[in-house]
Structure formats: C-alpha cells, structure tokens
C-alpha cells in the first residue's frame, strides 16, 4: 500500500535531516506504531505519507502512485483516501460535533441524506451517541478525540494517520482510544500511529517502527495484521 524508497527530508538547507534514507513497506490492513523521542522524525514521516510535505530525495509510492508526481485532482483523491487524527483534535469550536464530522463528507459533495445517515452511525460507533449537538468545548479531551476519530473514519478511508492521538488525554482514556483504533483496524483500515505511549505500544503487540534522528533503528512485528481489505 505504501512504499518509501531511500526517503530523506531536510527542512532547512544545510540543516540536519528530519528523515534520513528511510525505506519502508506498509501493507494494507496493517497496524503500525511509530515510536521514538521528540525530534526523531515521526511527525515528518506522517506528513510525508499524507503528502503535506514532499521528500527532499527518494520516492514515496501510495497504491503504486508516486506521491511527488500528483496533479491537483490526484492529491485530492489521495487526501480523501485517508483520515487524519491530531494530538490537539483540530475540531472546529464554532461547530457542533455533528457538524464537525459532517464536514468531512460535505467537502466531497456527499448528498445530505447520506450525511444524515452516516454521521450519527459513526458517532455511535466511537461512543458519542447523543453528543451530536454538543460543541467541542462541552466535551472531555477523550470525547473530543473520539469526535476527531469519527471525522477521520466517516468516509471509510483506506488509511488512518494519527499523530500523538493520546498526547492530551489521561492513560485510561488513552487505552480506550487505542481500543477504538484497534476496532477500526479490524475492519481492514490501515492504521499508522505516531506516539510516545510506550506502555500502550507494548501492550498492543503490533508492528513497531522506532525512529531516532530521522533513521529507522528498529522495525519489529509483534502481532499479526488484518487482511480484511
């Protein structure tokens, strides 16, 4: 599904590389943790895969397409095939939880009937049934992140990219969120999570890619991955 060939990323000319000569192969249905200290390159790797950033050298293939060669419609298609989850949730404060999730469908021009049917269903799936009319400020951190996950999965994406999704919640809530990601992955969606939460990573027995100073220092498969797609 995703292939990185000798990918490097340098933000500042002459500065240290954020990612250095990374080779990686991700199969559809995998659940991957990206771990490593701050500045190891986890977020850069997420941004390269989501095509928010372009590599300075090397090639990234997504479904066998070179992401650097995308034309605008292909970039749109790329973004529509994935769901993003952020540490700070990035929910719109002025919109209700329903409206926040519905936005993901509205930007692709889905009909109102489909939106009305899908949004409550996905909110129920992430455990937010009955919170449709609440504003983000009225929810706990864990609930806000569940809303963020609902927005990411409402379009049934092939891939979920999550950057420190448990960074702003307590350990118990974090466990609940990870279980939710696991449940999403069981449906066949590939999940890549950048995290500092070692205890959760060790408990979940998934593929772990450890990064340090922009290089992959460990790539270990601790459990089986899902081939449902």
């Amino acid at each position: 599904m995703i292939d990185l060939f000798s990918v490097s990323k340098v933000y500042k000319s002459g500065g240290p590389p954020a990612i250095s000569c990374v080779n990686l192969h991700v199969e559809q249905g995998e659940f991957i943790f990206l771990v490593g200290p701050s500045g190891a390159g986890k977020t850069t790797l997420i941004k390269l895969i989501s095509r928010e950033e372009l590599p300075t050298s090397g090639r990234i293939l997504f479904l066998n397409n070179d992401t650097a060669a995308y034309k605008p419609p292909e970039l749109l298609r790329h973004r529509r095939l994935m769901g993003m989850v952020f540490q700070d949730f990035r929910l719109l404060k002025s919109k209700t939880i329903y409206e926040n999730v519905a936005l993901a469908l509205e930007v692709t021009g889905r009909p109102p009937q489909e939106i009305k049917a899908k949004v409550p269903a996905v909110l129920a799936r992430v455990g937010l049934a009955g919170k449709e009319e609440a504003f983000p400020s009225e929810l706990s951190g864990g609930e806000q992140q569940r809303a963020g996950i609902a927005r990411a999965i409402v379009r049934d994406p092939l891939l979920i990219l999550a950057d420190e999704p448990t960074g702003n919640v307590d350990p118990e809530t974090a466990r609940g969120l990870m279980e939710l990601f696991e449940e999403i992955n069981r449906g066949g969606t590939t999940v890549i999570i950048a995290t500092h939460a070692w205890d959760l990573v060790e408990r979940m027995k998934k593929r772990v890619i450890a990064l340090d100073k922009g290089r992959i220092i460990k790539d270990e498969r601790q459990g089986s991955f899902n081939h449902a797609h």
């Binding site: 749109l76 790329h78 973004r79 990035r90 930007v107």
Partner: peptide
C-alpha cells in the same frame, strides 16, 4: 477551518 478542510481533501 480552511486548514482542516485541506486535510479533509476539499478542493
């Protein structure tokens, strides 16, 4: 909102 819409694949 515009930033989030870009992430969501808005044209």
């Amino acid at each position: 909102e515009i930033g989030i819409m870009k992430y969501l694949g808005a044209s």
